[in-house]
Design a protein around this nucleic acid. Structure first.
Lengths: 253, 253
DNA sequence: CGTGAATTTGATTCACCTCAACCAATGTGG
DNA sequence: CCACATTGGTTGAGGTGAATCAAATTCACG
């Protein structure tokens, strides 16, 4: 148990366990002192607007496997992830599943302000979020054009991510998919300030498979192949990117 | 040559052919009298705002195969399609292509107001568009929050389309992909008021293949299979949806 | 009609899936 | 403290759906 990136015990200290009320990433100072504010949509707000946002916000903690909302649920709130990782998935009537993506720290759920959610959101690790009442939030959006602008920018970013992913799903081989997935995750971690060469994988192999349009066995095989080729090193809870250049080459972006 | 949905001669009359200046769908009355206004983002505007939009707009006509803009081009304009169909594609460095989608009448190109275009846009048929200078358009967006709201709604819709498509690319069989593609196209045509059982296919088989993550041969085989099964009837320039219920069942949405 | 492009059809191959063990780590009850 | 079950992951053998390779055919257009 030497390397343990997936462990629920960061340097912060002991984890309170199930049902914990610890609000990771948000001090008692509220939105103004929020760790993740500047990398989230909230960065669009200052002073009185920020106070107004805070007034309609609520802090929420989720245990692993806990469901935040389900596909087709009435969207009566939107969320901002402040800690942990959330799986966003969709189910086909016959049971086939696709994992649309993973929401990390700073990601916003309900960007499009939809009537109903189009995906199911489930915690992969202990998760903290800010919950905003949808009605109050949309009212704030109406009043603060700059917030909508920010929301729209973010939606545009999501759209390009979606395009990248469609290209990946439609035109890449299994090995390319896995390599591209790892690199994509790394760059998303980098966006939020995590630049370790050891990549934490809070999601399981099945989740990765359902995200890449593969089976769990193929994902496993490709990871072990990359490991054997010395491109990565599989460690408990994640992978170490040993030869990122080689991965870039394999991903063929 | 009995059925001819792909023919460039709708009831309107003769087509002027290459290089034509005819502005389909837009009378001389300008934006206020525009056929497609109410189904496009322009519906957000009225009166003086609409005049302001019109002042920065320019009508453009494209011949088939003509390129409107290319991937990574500086986006110095955004567009609204008023007639025809546009292919939106992306290229991988090694030449593999993915067709992200097809823009039809009423669709907006540059929704996210990006710095650079992420796709190449190419006319599949004679196309007419409104061109808006990007700087002037974003200025208008800043002044008219309601327009941004509309843009954002549309982006949300695009995002759900992208999600549907990711599910399709990752988890569906070739036959399901083709069936779902035809039904999806039908519902998009319905949105713009075209409800004929005969579906025009302005794109080629290779375009469909690159859109669905298949090869041209597989698309052809699946179409002929659907034809043999009496679910569709292949006609020049398109297909007739003979048994839509059967298609729905095959698409397994 | 004739020519080149687009599409369809056929034969064969292969990348990934399916099915089935197997393994390691963790938890549980006696 | 140890049999036993459970969970998540890996590995192997064999099958298959779609890709690839190769023509044949139809279509568009001068």
């Amino acid at each position: 148990m030497t390397v343990r990136p997936g462990s629920p015990e960061p340097d912060a200290g002991a984890d309170p366990g199930p049902g914990h009320a610890c609000l990771h990433g948000r001090s008692e100072g509220g939105c103004a002192a929020c760790d993740v504010r500047m990398i989230s949509v909230c960065a669009a707000l200052t002073g009185p607007e920020l106070e107004r946002l805070e007034a309609v916000s609520q802090r929420i903690a989720l245990d692993p496997r806990q469901i935040l909302f389900a596909q087709d649920d009435r969207a009566d709130a939107v969320y901002n992830v402040t800690e942990g990782a959330v799986r966003l998935s969709r189910l086909l009537p016959d049971g086939r599943r696709h994992v649309m993506g993973f929401a990390l720290v700073g990601d916003f759920l309900g960007l499009a302000l939809p009537e109903r959610f189009t995906v199911t959101a489930e915690a992969l690790s202990p998760v903290s979020l800010c919950r905003f009442d949808r009605r109050a939030f949309t009212a704030l959006v109406e009043d603060v054009p700059h917030l909508l602008r920010r929301l729209h920018e973010r939606a545009g970013y999501e759209l390009t991510l979606a395009q990248d992913h469609m290209m990946l799903l439609g035109r890449r081989t299994a090995e390319e998919k896995v390599a591209a997935f790892l690199l994509g995750l790394r760059s998303r971690y980098a966006r939020i300030g995590l630049t370790s060469v050891t990549l934490e994988l809070p999601m399981g192999r099945q989740d990765i498979a359902d995200h890449l349009g593969l089976t769990i066995e193929t994902v496993s095989r490709m990871l072990t192949r990359l490991d054997r080729e010395r491109a990565i090193l599989i460690v408990p809870g994640g992978v170490r990117l040993v030869d990122a250049a080689r991965l870039e080459q394999l991903a063929a972006s």
